[in-house]
Amino acid sequence: MVERNKISNRIKELRAKFNMTQEDLAQKVGVTRQTIISIEKNEYVPSLLLGMRIAQTFKLPVEEIFIANF
């Protein structure tokens, strides 16, 4: 079930598509692997800057990776 007022994301799916490990993505965007794990589990909402870095890594617009559930 999708929780309201939460931001979910497609990072896990996109990592698999791009054949990337959590460590690879963490290094590319300059954070720790624990942070990527937290984002994937929707436990931590990244800053706009980090969100844009992730989007740039997957060459997609931010709104196609992060989905707001209002």
């Binding site: 300059g30 954070v31 720790t32 624990q34 942070t35 937290s38 931590y44 990244p46 800053s47 980090l50």
Partner: peptide
């Protein structure tokens, strides 16, 4: 802190 999450 190594990144923004740890800073928070």
């Amino acid at each position: 802190p190594r990144d923004e999450r740890e800073t928070m």
